[in-house]
């Protein structure tokens, strides 16, 4: 922002100066400038001034640069790194915090006023990570780890999106970014590190019996699958299916019965053969995982 303001004022000042010179030149068209004077104008106005100005602007931009990216010293100072892995068509999110590894999916929470380092990866094809309200985008390339640093300025809920075509449901691959006060964030992160208090609900047995756990992980149960999104605290997320539909019990049940209806090309098979009351029970249990 500061850079933008400074550059804009600088550009405006230079534009005004150039236009003034043009006006003066047009008005005094009959007056001939002596050659030495003309040479001096060219030397100072055409060479020295642009060089000095460009040098100053370049120096200023370089001076700002270290604050725009995470540095090793910065990494030591903060104890949070967020690893986001692009998958067709969802986001695997892992918070690395004081030796803990806290898994989540499709929703990212950030503390306001802290610069957070993101490690961006991909497991299948090229994706691109972009939360426009928080910063620029960065590609997620299989076999590479790209770094991005973001700092939220105010609390709120922001939408992010995959901005590199990644397949059938590319357009249905969004992301919710929730920015919180640092204290609230710390409390939230601590709660995420533990299993949900409702993990003993009645849908749990059905969830495990129907094999959901071979693809999805739910902390505090035998479900440890890693092929699909981590569902340990699914109920606390704002959106479902990577930012596509509201996170309601009905939508969860609908997604279990036929994921392709909400997300064409999703790897999860339809579970429409399950009894409707079983699906409802699983959905109610998942919604309760807060």
């Amino acid at each position: 922002m500061t850079l933008f303001v400074v550059m804009s004022f600088g550009a405006a000042a230079i534009w005004l100066a150039v236009v003034t010179v043009v006006c003066v030149a047009v008005r005094s068209q009959r007056r001939v400038v002596a050659e030495p004077a003309a040479s001096r104008i060219i030397l100072w106005g055409g060479a020295v001034f642009p060089t000095v100005t460009l040098f100053a602007l370049l120096t200023y931009a370089f001076w700002l640069m270290p604050t725009l990216r995470p540095s090793p010293t910065f990494r030591d100072a903060t104890d949070l790194r967020v690893e986001v892995t692009g998958r067709q068509y969802w986001w695997q999110v892992v918070y690395f915090h004081r030796g803990l590894k806290i898994a989540a999916a499709n929703e990212i929470r950030l503390p306001v006023g802290r610069r957070i380092e993101f490690s961006l990866k991909s497991d299948d094809v090229i994706h691109s990570f972009w939360i426009p309200s928080l910063g620029g985008k960065m590609d997620m390339i299989p076999g590479r780890e790209n770094r991005l640093s973001l700092m939220a300025q105010r609390t709120g809920v922001f939408r992010g999106a995959c901005t590199e075509f990644c397949g059938t449901s590319h357009a249905f691959m969004s992301l919710t970014a929730v920015t919180m006060e640092p204290e609230a964030f710390d409390a939230w992160l601590a709660s995420q590190a533990k299993a949900s208090i409702n993990v003993a609900g009645e849908g749990r047995a059905l969830f495990l019996r129907h094999g959901c756990g071979s693809c999805h992980r739910v902390a505090g149960t035998q479900a440890t699958g890693a092929a699909g999104p981590d569902l340990s605290h699914l109920g606390s997320r704002q959106m479902l299916a990577a930012g596509i539909v509201a996170n309601t019990e009905d939508n969860i049940a609908g997604f279990i019965a036929n994921p392709g209806a909400i997300k064409p090309g999703a790897a999860m098979p339809a579970f429409s053969m399950l009894a409707p009351q079983d699906i409802r029970a699983i959905a109610a249990w998942l919604k309760g995982l807060r």
Binding site: A47, L54, F55, L58, F62, W63, M65, P66, P70, S71
Partner: peptide, 22 residues
């Protein structure tokens, strides 16, 4: 030579401000 002088300075400038590599 004047152009090259300025260009060499500008090439070396970042290393004053960038203090490490990621």
């Amino acid at each position: 030579a004047g152009l090259s002088f300025v260009a060499v300075l500008m090439t070396a400038l970042p290393v004053i401000f960038v203090s490490e590599c990621l």
